[in-house]
């Protein structure tokens, strides 16, 4: 499993499109920094087919006032959860 880290808003940048082309079925996506806006209902439509493999960093959501605005399908993890995701991954690829 590859962990893909996205730190760009899908509303402002198209890097998520490159990320999607570089993913296979078991891969996971962690949204951090401005990338957490992809966890909104309008955001996940831009990241189709990832569903339950989509994670977002809690503290970056909270800082932006977006915690309560996430789509329910998004897994919210704290920084320890971020570390755990990297433990489980064969490699980590960052998209920015």
């Amino acid at each position: 499993m590859v962990l893909h880290i996205l730190n760009r808003s899908p509303f402002a940048s198209r890097v998520h499109e490159d990320m999607l082309r570089a993913m296979v079925n078991e891969d996971r996506v962690l949204l951090i920094e401005d990338g957490v806006s992809a966890a909104l209902k309008a955001g996940i439509t831009l990241l189709p087919t990832i569903d339950e493999r989509l994670y977002a960093l809690k503290e970056d959501l909270e800082a932006r006032g977006l915690s309560q605005r996430c789509d329910p399908c998004v897994n919210i993890v704290d920084v320890d959860g971020f570390v755990a995701l990297t433990e489980q991954a064969d490699k980590v690829v960052s998209w920015f």
Binding site: V2, R21, A22, V24, K91, V93
Partner: peptide, 14 residues
């Protein structure tokens, strides 16, 4: 295929 290429490598630096 970018996904296949990533799978073939041990380290990916972007």
């Amino acid at each position: 295929d970018p996904a296949e290429l990533i799978a073939e490598h041990d380290i990916v630096l972007t």
